[in-house]
Structures are given as structure tokens and as C-alpha cells.
Amino acid sequence: MTENQPSAQSVSHRLLNDPDRIRAVQDQLLAQAEEIGFGKSAAFALRLALEEAIRNAFLHGLKNAKDKPVDVSWTISPDRVTIVVNDHGPGFDPGDIPDPTAPENLERPCGRGLLLMRAYMSSVEYNDAGNTVTMRYEPGDD
């Protein structure tokens, strides 16, 4: 962990597809958010978006390969959380994901992760390769 500013904390993890480890990393972010003064709705948004981004990385980015890692990092300060999730996979085009709220897609059991990330975060951006997502959360958006 490095601290470049007194009020900002930066953390990075390399994860394998281990639910207990993923949960521990989520819990660490949530504990830091609580410590820094974020409320219940922020905690809900951060947990959900991080869960969806990590799940997408393992499921879609790495096709559930057990031996390939996902890098998760974040910087948290009182006015912003920036989360980066990189799966090192071949990437995808977010524009190719069908709208899961369209009537014809409503009964499809998958495809809602990105929608929820966008709904709960202030911004969600993919790199050109489509294998790294950067999510920003600003608590004023609550």
C-alpha cells in the first residue's frame, strides 16, 4: 500500500478466481470506505460494482480459467474512489453487449453486470483493448 496524499489510500491486489479471496478484497474496500466516512448507499454501490467488474473479468475476460489472474486496484479519498480491474484477457467491445432492459432481452439470465456498474458508478470506462475497466465513484452522486 502506498500513500501519496494524507487523505488518499491506494491498494492493489492480484487475484485468482477464489471467492473467499475476492470477498476479502471487497471487504477491505468497504472497510476503507466506512473509515473514510462513506455512507450505506456508497457501500452498496461500491460492493456491487466491484463484484460485477471482478465477475465479468473472470467469467468473460478469462473464461473462468483457474490459473489466470485479475489485477484489482483502487484509490480512495473522501471525495472519490477510482477502481481499476484488469483481466489481461483478449478484451471485448462494451458496445457489443445487448441492452438487457430491452423487452426481448428481459428474460436472458445474463448480461446485467455492466448495466449495474454504470448505474451505480459516476463513470465506467474501458481501455481500447477492452480488458481494463476504470470505475469512478463520487459520493455527491448519491
Binding site: F44, R47, L48, E51, E52, R55, C110, R112, G113
Partner: peptide
Amino acid sequence: HLSSAALG
């Protein structure tokens, strides 16, 4: 809390 996987 629930996730999109739970919705699925």
C-alpha cells in the same frame, strides 16, 4: 446485497 448473477 445481491449481484447480477443472483438476478440471473
